[in-house]
């Protein structure tokens, strides 16, 4: 077995163990409630429990490694005279200094993080309106028309004007029936895709971990 085969075997064995443990563990009803079924269910849940704890700590460590890599890259860029990397490193260092000297104080979050986040989100408004207008110019077919019509109905339906009560009723019906059906189908599609992608990763068909 080659080195790539070792990773694939590890993936299959660990994936199967975790899946069985999560599906069968902590569920005594699956074993007909017979004597000892609770102990059996608890034992079956154990491998999944251990692996989940292990992976949570590894993920936490990988986040730390990722941030260390980000800093390393930007230190290199500062050495080449990049101004914005210096801004990033300075804001990182200041935030850590603030956290160490003012534990439990969230005012830096309120003063800097939240305003930038909300200002960036509000800029998205212009992009979305511009994108909506471009739909009609680039794609003037039945589907483009339907898309823009729904956008306009939902936007008008959200206005608190008595004159627009029929539009509001139409918008509410749209949200309750066709949108609900489409959203259910999209969610079901995501769930089916997740199952297929998960099984493919476990079977070693999708070896994204090879990097």
């Amino acid at each position: 077995m080659g080195r790539a085969g070792i990773s694939a075997f590890v993936a299959f064995a660990v994936g199967l163990l975790t899946l069985l443990s999560l599906l069968l563990g902590d569920n005594p009803a699956l074993f007909g409630g017979q004597p000892g079924s609770e102990v059996l269910a608890e034992r079956l849940a154990l491998p999944g429990d251990v692996l989940l704890r292990l992976v949570v700590i590894v993920v936490a460590l990988s986040i730390v490694i990722g941030i260390a890599n980000l800093l390393y890259v930007h230190v290199g860029r500062v050495a080449r005279g990049k101004f914005y990397s210096a801004v990033l490193l300075a804001s990182f260092a200041f935030t850590i200094y603030w956290y160490v000297t003012n534990r439990g104080d969230s005012s830096l979050l309120e003063a800097a993080q939240v305003p930038i986040e909300s200002a960036l989100a509000s800029l998205l408004f212009f992009s979305l309106v511009y994108g909506g207008a471009r739909v009609m110019r680039k794609r003037a077919d039945i589907w483009g028309l339907l898309f823009v019509a729904v956008v306009i109905i939902v936007l008008l339906g959200s206005l608190p004007l008595a004159e627009l009560a029929p539009v509001k009723a139409w918008s509410d019906w749209l949200m309750a029936v066709p949108v609900s059906a489409g959203a259910r189908a999209i969610l079901l599609g995501i769930a089916l895709g997740t199952v297929v992608a998960g099984v493919r990763a476990m079977l070693g068909q999708d070896r994204s971990y090879r990097g």
């Binding site: 993936a11 899946l19 990988s62 476990m202 971990y209």
Partner: peptide, 12 residues
């Protein structure tokens, strides 16, 4: 591989 398949199992 361990991290991805455990995550995949939880997702499934």
């Amino acid at each position: 591989a361990v991290v991805i398949v455990v995550g995949a199992s939880v997702a499934v």
